[in-house]
Design a binder for these strands. Sequence first.
DNA 1: GTGTGATTAGAATATTCATTCCATTTTCGA
DNA 2: TCGAAAATGGAATGAATATTCTAATCACAC
Lengths: 277, 277
Amino acid sequence: MNKAQGAMSYDELRGAIAQRHRALSGRLQQIAEFVLDHPTDVALGTVAEVAQRSGVPPSAIVRFAHALGFGGFTEMQQVFRSRLVAGVAPSYKARLARMKSEEKSVLGRKPAAVLSRFVSEAQSALVTLSQSVHTRELEAATAILAKARDIYLLGLGGSFPVATHLAYVLRKLGRRVVLLDGTGGSIHEQSHAATVDDALVAISFRNYYPDTARLFPELVARGVPTISITDSLLSPIAEGASVVFEIQDMPEPALRTLVAPMCLVQALAIGLDLAAD
Amino acid sequence: MNKAQGAMSYDELRGAIAQRHRALSGRLQQIAEFVLDHPTDVALGTVAEVAQRSGVPPSAIVRFAHALGFGGFTEMQQVFRSRLVAGVAPSYKARLARMKSEEKSVLGRKPAAVLSRFVSEAQSALVTLSQSVHTRELEAATAILAKARDIYLLGLGGSFPVATHLAYVLRKLGRRVVLLDGTGGSIHEQSHAATVDDALVAISFRNYYPDTARLFPELVARGVPTISITDSLLSPIAEGASVVFEIQDMPEPALRTLVAPMCLVQALAIGLDLAAD
DNA sequence: GTGTGATTAGAATATTCATTCCATTTTCGA
DNA sequence: TCGAAAATGGAATGAATATTCTAATCACAC
């Protein structure tokens, strides 16, 4: 009976089960086959449920966990749950890697390590982006921009780089763009001319810049079609928006790379240009 | 209060939460934000755990579930668990489908194809970045920034988003930053106070913005230590620079995503902050 | 056939958990 | 400033759960 099974991965557990399968008693073999065939049931079920589905008494399940070196069913269940978590969050690997590198923080301070950390975080942000953005939203957004006379861009604070980038690209493509940057006065004045014939692209992440939260509802109320890029459906620029792009897992302001939103606005702009032909 | 929430999908639940968010009480709003941000915790945790992580009493969690029309926490949890289950199985299928759509990205004018094209382009840009940037340059750059009293940032035109992002992060970390944006006059005047005790970070890609090409040599001549981020060693901001980061294969202006330089400046700023401790 | 040791099933138990209830606080309108 | 209604936090409760224990069963050697 092994010790220290606590930090076992699902794949390791599968291997361990397969290895010991022959040495187990009849009932325990039966359970071994069941848990390998129905890992999700084990992850989410109770002892009683697993017992019933596999056709054994509950105590046998616990004995099985013991035989594998776990303290009990609950402990073994953690391994099966980790599999579910890994499947749904693509950034899981990256996060693990980051934690590792943070452990050895001495090495982690070297600039090269910092760079590779941000690179891998950016990689997973891109994967998440392509998974979470759907065709429907992209097409709706493109349609809004295509009909717009002027395109107003609202992105302040940490989101300002995204707004300026989108402004740059759209202008290169010959669109009329108003960048709401608050220079020389209030953004209210800058946005005063926006109508239902225009469009607004708003970008904001936590902590949401106050001016953004204030101005956005006003433009919505005036009937300006709106595309929001934010990190939560509950953000102040989500409600009332015609289209919302939700980019999850944005790190805290000082650490975020803006890679995902930059990529998204780029795609929006070029997609608009291609669709217009 | 709605009925028949039993057969609700996770996405529907998200929508429902977002919709009612405003109408909820303060505590309940707080919980709404937490559960949307940490769906996995809700799926696998107990009431007590979720309560502790979200900083509310357990009873509030149950009240939240009731407010959404569920009979209790357990019932709501089923929806969050369904998300995990859905995440594991179809991952192969989804990946295949995505690859397929990427294949015909050449034909693809459809917005989704455009996005996936930019995503994969960004991915390879990141790989190139981590390969082409060397420890020596990173450390030299960090040393320059660490000694600087004020940090001047020069990035105009298409590089302006990178400069504003770096400015934002450095300021968050408590550094003194002067962003040379030319607002309200000439950038010459804005950079007039720069001395050998300061530092300059210049960012420029083809076609090099004229003002950048003009101002850069002046500051170099005044002895200001300089870090350049550009796409060629022959660029106007390469000669005379203390450190040059060369980022190759930058696409034409309208198509570039700025992912690589954004990531690089981020790493510079954080690396500087970590090294300063 | 019989005795021994392992294996098992099911009941008993102790723990954990979700839920409810109530006293207190907060909010909002008069 | 006061009063009513809503919201909140925390303890109490009862259900559900994992685990342990014990008596019965089984396999197998002699």
